[in-house]
Design a protein around this nucleic acid. Structure first.
Lengths: 248, 248
DNA sequence: CGGTCTGTTGAAGGATTTCAACACTCGTGG
DNA sequence: CCACGAGTGTTGAAATCCTTCAACAGACCG
């Protein structure tokens, strides 16, 4: 490992132009839930969204806050977490550009059930949830798209539940790394398939329902066995096949 | 406890008339996802469903089977489970009349991700998933209803994930009992709020990600503390308030 | 260049599982 | 109608995976 570069993670120098009108339209047109919407409708819909910029580590919204808006990641990565009173955290999901979060609900009394944090510099589009519901009824194709996405998320959540219920910690970590690699992996000359996102041992522990210490021990072992490379806040997969075997 | 009646569970003597046309229409009109659909549309939609009857304990479909149909519980209770190769089971959900399961997907290659079993005598309506998708695009209000249900299920699944990650077994069991009581509870003169469904210690264990032995020990303790009544395949809540306190 | 955040490793302790043996209920067939 | 067997539930004791507690090392930031 060269001493010149401590983290192989891509440095994103974000200026305000990261949230340009062009990028917004580009993102909305590619967003899975607007697939099949024609350009004119898209421009119409775009008007109803507003953009916000967040630094790495900033809170986007808090658990138990009134849930009023639906949000879309334009650029950057977003982390969804839940917290206990005793200080335990659970990491529910990591989002990349094109994914939505926040609330679909129209009811006034509802609150966010998780806390959203920007894991990197991010640009977020948001829309009043009632306005989004109007879009849903106006453009049925959008409703069906969103439905498919929700079905996929339910599936993923139940997969996690299943794995948490049946697998020992080391296999859970292996699976989590595998999936993160699928979603966020970028080929790196030096280290292999790099998970392109700041990722601490605690993040991993909060995904696997274990402690930072245990996560650290498992990462150490995977490093020793030549399956992954890892450093401060980054992990890269050297031997994806072996990682998959481990998680079986 | 009287010796005359070993189980306080309601005996449902189901004959074929349990799946009458009247009951079908009645159920569809009350089903949450058809809320807001006018009677004529409803009759139209009803034609596309077909009814099937299952005995208690029968399999409705198996994990990994091609997922072709969406189903609706008309009467009875349905259990959704996943199985591991090593014989561990995870109980994903218990469904009551009005709830749907199966697949929303239209894609041919997909398979069911869980096994569905009738927990009691049941009547099930089913529809080809493609035909249901046609309904979704034809009646946007249905799509939005289904979306709300899926959002609720995702929420519930993430709640389970959170509890599994942060709570010790006894609190998890307490929460599960509380929720089952909310959903399936019926006031019983003798025992209190009776969970109206056959429910073994193993079922509970598979919901709480623990073993039958541990579930049994916890149920024994709750019985000793006067919080619940329980017997073979049934549980009734005596002190709901205390159960809620325990799960905090 | 000190302080904080992150990561590492060891050793003790604890919650839950595993293994084992047994009791009870219920349906079924002799 | 009773006996038997399968399915279900119970309880104890040993074993184990993982957490907790503790101490320390390196990296990054102002």
């Amino acid at each position: 490992m060269s001493k010149r570069r401590e983290t192989p993670l891509e440095k994103i120098f974000i200026e305000s132009h990261h949230c340009t009108i062009d990028l917004r339209l580009e993102m909305l047109s590619q967003a899975p839930f607007f697939k099949g919407l024609d350009p004119e409708m898209l421009r119409e819909v775009n008007k109803r969204f507003s953009a916000t910029h967040f630094e790495a580590g900033e809170m986007i919204y808090y658990e138990d806050e009134p849930a009023l808006r639906l949000r879309v990641v334009v650029s950057g990565k977003v982390k969804l977490m839940r917290h206990t009173e005793e200080g335990k955290d659970v990491l529910i999901d990591m989002l990349k550009p094109g994914e939505f979060f926040g609330t679909l609900s129209h009811l006034g009394g509802e609150v966010y059930s998780e806390t959203a944090t920007s894991q990197t510099h991010t640009c977020i589009l948001s829309i009043d949830s009632q306005a989004f519901r109007d879009i849903l009824t106006q453009y049925p194709v959008v409703a069906v798209n969103v439905l498919d996405i929700m079905a996929g998320r339910l599936q993923a959540s139940r997969d996690s539940l299943f794995e948490l219920s049946t697998l020992p910690v080391d296999q859970r970590i292996a699976r989590i790394l595998y999936r993160l690699a699928e979603k966020f992996g970028e080929q790196d000359d030096e280290f292999g398939l790099l998970i392109q996102m700041p990722l601490t041992r605690k993040d991993l522990a909060d995904m696997a329902a274990t402690t930072t210490e245990t996560a650290s021990r498992i990462i150490s072992r995977l490093k020793k066995d030549g399956i992954i490379h890892a450093g401060r806040q980054w992990i890269a997969i050297e031997d994806l096949q072996e990682l998959e075997n481990l998680s079986a």
